[in-house]
Design a protein around this nucleic acid. Structure first.
Length: 340
DNA sequence: GGGCCCGCAGGG
DNA sequence: CCCTGCGGGCCC
């Protein structure tokens, strides 16, 4: 006997799915590997394999840099890309420690600051971690040198590549609109059809607990209504009006056939097609902000999950996209794809 | 595997 | 400074 709330949820989901299917059929949409001519029957979920964490927190000692020639050679570890599957490295190289000893790295002669910019004075703040960034994450559109399909083990690595700056938050934005979002399974009722998906806003979670029982959490269940007054949600709403592209990463926790099995993957640019509110999938039916995203046509096709085979076949082309810049670090401030 | 607690980036 | 936030390491 479904309750009124359950029926409402069901209706919401059906309506949202219909909306996404319509978006997918839009001209230029629908382009993931192996996609049939017609609509997309979403394949069954692949079983998610959680990241296997290494007990030993120590990071692998970085290789000694090419003595002296370090002035423009970025640390090769800054970015893990799909092409690393070659040579047996695969994705099982779970060795990126969390406790990074930057002084040790500096002692090794690795340049931690690949470029300037980003509003940081690297002369006065040489140890500032964001100084590692080669590009400003607060830009709209693609990031030079970061191909669609680029993969990272952690959100931190992704952040360093300026694709999605926050380590935890799912939305990065400003009053100008949203720069990027992370699909990481935080909301069970989000639907992911690949070329189009729904996304739930932020806020309405009880992160602090009560004064007597403080929690100090980073994520928590829904405990209040969301609203578009929330700056993150507002940014996405603005994006739905300006239609500026938003970078999208999918994480391993996302329940979707398009989610990577491990880590986080950059899946290219999407536009926010619609913003609305509805009762979310939470015990008390708190309101959440919902957004419908549609992939910008003409990008490298999505892959299903890790799509082991497809990815291996594709690795030669990992950087061959027209709007991708082959080199790791740009000297120029060229921001191709930006609609700033 | 769940609970806990923490650092951190980013914005106000 | 304060606060938030779809991480992640660690302990049990």
């Amino acid at each position: 006997m479904p309750t009124a709330y359950e029926k409402e949820r069901e209706a919401n989901m059906a309506r949202n799915r219909a909306l996404l299917e319509e978006l997918q059929l839009d001209k230029g949409g629908a382009t993931f590997l192996g996609m049939p001519e017609k609509p997309a029957p979403v394949p069954p979920f692949k079983k998610r394999r959680p990241v296997v964490h290494q007990k030993n927190k120590k990071r692998k000692t970085p290789p000694p840099s090419d003595s002296g020639a370090e002035s423009e050679t970025p640390p090769s570890r800054v970015r893990k890309v799909a092409t690393e599957v070659e040579g047996g490295l695969r994705r099982s190289s779970r060795n990126a420690g969390k406790t990074v000893n930057y002084e040790a790295e500096i002692a090794h002669g690795l340049p931690k600051i690949v470029t300037k910019k980003v509003g940081v004075d690297h002369d006065t703040e040489p140890n500032r971690r964001s100084g590692k960034r080669a590009h400003d994450p607060k830009t709209f559109g693609s990031i030079p040198g970061i191909a669609v399909g680029t993969w990272w083990e952690t959100r931190e690595d992704c952040s360093n590549d300026a694709i999605h700056a926050p380590w935890v938050a799912g939305i990065s934005g400003s009053p100008e609109g949203a720069y990027s979002v992370a699909l990481s399974g935080g909301y069970e009722d989000d639907i992911d059809l690949g070329e189009a998906f729904t996304f739930t806003g932020s806020g309405g979670r009880d992160l602090k607990g009560t004064k007597n029982a403080p929690k100090n959490l980073r994520t928590a269940p829904q405990s209040a209504d969301q609203s578009f007054e929330n700056p993150f949600n507002k940014a996405l709403k603005i994006s739905s009006e300006t239609k500026k592209p938003v970078r999208v990463i999918r994480g391993f926790k996302l329940k979707s056939p398009f989610a990577p099995v491990e880590g986080y993957r950059y899946d290219g640019l999407y536009t926010v097609e619609k913003a609305w509110m509805e009762r979310g999938l939470n015990p008390k039916g708190f309101l959440v902000c919902k957004f419908a995203f549609k992939r910008v046509p003409g990008q490298k096709p999505l892959v299903l999950g890790d799509a082991e085979g497809a990815e291996a076949e594709d690795e030669e082309d990992a950087f061959s996209d027209a709007d991708d810049t082959p080199s790791e670090v740009q000297d120029t401030e060229d921001v191709s794809g930006s609609t700033n």
